[in-house]
Amino acid sequence: MEIDPFIFRLSIFILSIFIGYYVVWSVTPSLHTPLMSVTNAISSVIIVGAIIAALASSQGKIFETANIFGYLAIVLAAVNIFGGFLVTQRMLAMYKKKKKDKK
């Protein structure tokens, strides 16, 4: 009997939860705020669904309701992607070590 592809996706999902668990525990507490902003940015990869929805054209019509929701989702996700990564970058640039020349 063939295995339903859903099971493979479920396996990926469960294993990723475990990866997430171990990776996030190793994040240093002082970087918890950047962690939140970066997870926020990467969860906006949901934009791939939005792109597919937006570009889907049925009978040459490009502004069906489904497309419009796709475009709206693109805008929202894009705000997050750019905002999330850039603000993370900005925060991380501020974390500096003690300078050598200090006593």
Partner: peptide, 12 residues
């Protein structure tokens, strides 16, 4: 990509 990311962010 979405499944992996969702799981990562969810557990985070």
């Amino acid at each position: 990509a979405l499944i992996i990311t969702g799981a990562l962010v969810g557990s985070s």
